[in-house]
């Protein structure tokens, strides 16, 4: 039937469009164990569903304009019992079992001693990430998750305020962060690379700007990164950056933010110890860089309305640049 062909063409066309899409946050381009299983499940169901849809269209077409003998075959309760009861029961039973098996595959291995364990806390509207090393020491970061490829990582998901949902589509499905509960999501990256994730449960105001990056690294790179990230902020000899550092401390930024190695030890906003080394600012709202820092400090309520940081217009242009350069230097 022409409608069916039209649909197929459109469907194929859209897949082409998709290929042109950026894949950074796409469930179609899995780089994690759970996401890979689900991707296969998706295509199996889509193809089967597509065939069923075409079948229904063909049967409807026959019912409307088919030959009398064909129409007669469709026009009894026998047809309904076959196509409407027996066929769905068979298909759905198979699908149900398949779904259960895939669900069961998500069972995490019994906790072992050397399993990696990170905590992620959703806050309106950013992510507080706490890393634990093998010795149980912990340090904080924000809006970016580093994981080693090939090792299961336990993510303990909690929230500081309302319900959020942690979703890194290329690695795994989402899991909600609910007050009073700790939900554990185990992810295993299968490929190196940077991907993006986003809060999936509407959490008020700036819900649209609550994203993050996941950096999957080789275990060696990851070890190296952990060693560097757990340390204090790098000292920068650049004169402007040093002025920026003074401004940071004098203006009271440390009331909300921590920069380890300085007097700034606030716990309200994101930890900025290595903020210059992250892939983005403000929960993946801005690209990282001095210009973006300056823009954010003075203009953040326009960039990300309702976020909890007030805009700071107390700085002169050159002060703002110094401050931005300092923050950018915190690699």
């Amino acid at each position: 039937m022409s409608k069916g062909r039209f649909r197929t063409t459109v469907g194929a066309g859209l897949l082409v469009l998709l290929a042109a899409c950026n894949q950074e946050q796409s469930a179609f381009a899995p780089t994690g164990a759970e996401a890979e299983r689900i991707n296969v499940l998706f295509w199996v169901m889509t193809i089967a569903g597509g065939l069923i849809l075409v079948g229904v269209i063909v049967l409807s077409a026959v019912a409307i304009c088919g030959r009398e003998t064909l129409r007669a075959r469709l026009s009894g309760e026998r047809f309904i019992r076959g196509a409407g009861i027996a066929f769905p029961v068979v298909v759905l039973s198979m699908l149900l079992v398949y779904g259960f098996v895939i669900l069961g595959a998500g069972a995490s291995a019994p906790p072992s001693d050397n399993e990696m364990r990170f905590a992620i806390r959703g806050e309106q509207w950013w992510w507080r990430v706490t890393y634990f090393d093998a010795d149980g020491n912990s340090f904080e970061s924000a809006n970016e998750l580093h994981v080693p490829v090939g090792q299961p990582v336990r993510l303990e998901l909690t929230t500081a305020d309302v319900i959020h949902s942690f979703w890194a589509p290329r690695l795994a499905g989402k899991l909600d962060m609910i007050p009073g509960r700790i939900n554990v999501l185990t992810i295993t990256a299968t490929e190196e690379g940077i991907s993006r994730g986003q809060c999936a449960e509407y959490c008020g105001g700036a819900h649209a700007f609550m994203s993050f990056h996941v950096v999957a690294q080789t275990p060696e790179d990851f070890e190296e990164w952990m060693a560097k990230e757990s340390g204090p902020a790098v000292k920068n000899e650049n004169e402007r950056a040093a002025r920026g550092r003074e401004l940071f401390l004098d203006a009271g930024c440390g009331g909300c933010h921590t920069i380890r190695g300085t007097a700034a030890a606030g716990a309200i906003g994101p930890d900025l110890t290595h903020v210059g080394g992250r892939h983005s600012l403000a929960a993946a709202t801005l690209p990282n860089g001095a210009a973006a820092f300056a823009d954010w400090i003075s203009n953040n309520q326009h960039i990300k309305p309702e976020n909890k940081m007030p805009p700071y217009n107390i700085f002169t242009q050159s002060q703002l640049e110094d401050l931005a350069l300092y923050l950018e230097s915190l690699k």
Partner: peptide, 21 residues
């Protein structure tokens, strides 16, 4: 009966209390 059988099936295949994530 079919619906109840489907539900019972889950208990055969899946562990009782795990979050499975």
């Amino acid at each position: 009966i079919l619906a109840m059988f489907y539900v019972g099936l889950g208990a055969v295949i899946l562990p009782a209390c795990d979050q499975l994530r």
